[in-house]
Design a protein around this nucleic acid. Structure first.
Lengths: 145, 145
DNA sequence: TATCCAAAATCAACTTAGTTGCAAATATAA
DNA sequence: TTATATTTGCAACTAAGTTGATTTTGGATA
């Protein structure tokens, strides 16, 4: 998604040590073109070194709480993770019902939505998730042929 | 949410038998003021009769595939279910980070969003989920006192 | 009315995605 | 170096569903 971030600095700003494992998690997500599941992140790290899944889950959890990552709830039972750095402002996602793939969409409609959904009913909103579902172009082509 | 629906007719239109259990699921959801988790639905039915969880899960699944219910993916590991009848058009939801409660919001912003997110990138969208997160008014009051 | 049949519901066992508590290893401070 | 704190690992556990096989039930047929 974005390898533009200086991950060690990002972690320093958060006051967390830039351990090899934490950097590996960020690098995997930085190199990804879509949001990834914990399992996928785990496997990608395991392609390079030995890791325990608990460590990865804990890092994902911690990073999500700190706002370094965004966790996306999807229909699938496993959530997806994506970088939440300045190169990745919040954006809507498209999920294909067929293949399950999740693509990132243009952030613009989301910003516009803010004004509308901001604080209805006296709630203080701090996040909006927009998930679009349907059939993606790849699956459509397959179905049409 | 809505007891206005004629559930036996709704099922008849779908070509499924209106069994006691299927009606119980719809009645529980019809009487609810928010979307419910499978577990909650199960417990509410169990207050009245004996049921196996698998039956409820299978009914929820089937109804969701048929479009009788909508399944909402939330941060929590369990999804939520709500009626998808004409009295409940799709609408954004608000989830409180504190208490986890999910409220239904006004459907208007969602319809407006359609035009924008319809078919970007050649995908054919057929559903948009908008989930707003933050702190709800109740939890805000508690925190302020 | 009895019998058959398919649809619906049940049961036990399993899976997936994470969580917990504690121990071992590693890094940092005194 | 020793002490302390932080991070990682391991084993066991939990929650939320899923599977496959079996039993029950509610009508259709003989």
């Amino acid at each position: 998604m974005s390898d533009l971030c200086d991950f060690p600095r990002l972690l320093a700003r958060q006051g967390v040590k830039a351990t090899a494992l934490r950097l590996a998690v960020l690098e995997v997500l930085g190199a990804a073109t879509q949001a990834l599941r914990a399992q996928e992140i785990l496997e990608m790290i395991r392609a390079r070194r030995r890791v325990n899944k608990v460590s990865v889950y804990r890092i994902l959890d911690d990073f999500t709480r700190r706002g370094i990552l965004r966790r996306l709830a999807v229909d699938d039972r496993a959530s997806l993770y994506e970088l939440a750095c300045e190169h990745h402002p919040p954006h809507p996602h498209f999920q294909c019902r067929q293949c399950g793939q999740v693509q990132c969409l243009d952030p613009a409609p989301l910003s516009r939505m803010w004004a509308e959904l901001q604080g209805p009913l006296g709630n203080r909103a701090d996040r909006i998730d927009i998930r679009v579902a349907g059939i993606c172009h790849k699956c459509r082509e397959i179905a049409e042929n």
